[in-house]
């Protein structure tokens, strides 16, 4: 092997990668936050006894879970202009795609979590006069979140990595910048290794904190 790695190309182009990292964060955190809120709402629709709520939400969830994310992102970027005559920016298309996808996944996490809580908890809450919404907020959700924390953490990790797919519709995020630099300098080994390292540094603190939180919550039961 006569290839000699030269990481100076990474250091020289650090500002480019930093800009990419910032765009990645701008896709990642909002799509997680919005996806969790959306996921909770969809899970309520899924669990509803009203069929006009439960059936459309089921279709939504299955559509987004059973098709590749890559196609979803491309679809929002290229199909939207055709269907509704509005051209989304690549960034908006990526954010929308990942948010809707995360919504579908977290809806299932919430639904599973809520169903796993014994029926008696809802009854106990209602028996002291709580409304359904109060019982959800005070009794059911705190227990669901605790139980589902590993699943939510997993989802956060997935979305951080999935955001790299946005490079395909030329969102200037971390992966896009990495690929651009690779083909400019013909140094894919150094640059992509560095990109992988940046993803790791981005994601690891989150998983570490989630692990700590899980342990703290476990104490109360």
């Amino acid at each position: 092997m006569n290839y000699s790695p030269d990481f100076s190309v990474v250091l020289d182009n650090w500002p480019v990668l930093a800009r990419g990292l910032w765009v990645t964060i701008q896709i990642w955190l909002p799509s997680i936050a919005l996806g969790l809120i959306g996921g909770f709402l969809i899970s309520q629709a899924r669990l509803s006894s009203r069929r006009w709520l439960s059936i459309p939400s089921l279709v939504y969830v299955e559509l987004f879970r059973d098709t590749p994310v890559l196609i979803q992102l491309i679809w929002f970027f290229y199909a939207f202009p055709i269907l509704i005559g509005v051209q989304l920016t690549p960034f908006t298309a990526a954010l929308l795609g990942l948010t809707l996808n995360t919504t579908a996944y977290s809806a299932e996490i919430f639904r599973g979590g809520i169903k796993s809580i014994h029926r008696g908890q809802m009854e106990g809450a209602k028996a002291i006069g709580m409304t359904h919404a109060q019982a959800m907020r005070r009794v059911i959700l705190p227990q669901v979140v605790k139980r589902m924390l590993p699943a939510f953490t997993n989802r956060m990790i997935e979305v951080a990595k999935m955001s790299s797919l946005a490079s395909v519709i030329s969102v200037h995020e971390l992966m896009y910048q990495g690929r651009l630099l690779s083909s400019t300098y013909y140094r894919p080994f150094e640059i992509l290794t560095a990109v992988a390292f940046i993803y790791f540094v981005l994601i690891y603190p989150g998983t570490f904190l989630a692990g700590r939180l899980e342990k703290r919550l476990a104490r109360s039961s």
Partner: peptide, 16 residues
């Protein structure tokens, strides 16, 4: 339900 309270077989206390 505020006026008619209930005690269950399985207690149904809030574990958290």
């Amino acid at each position: 339900r505020e006026r008619v309270g209930m005690v269950f077989q399985q207690f149904n206390l809030f574990p958290h």
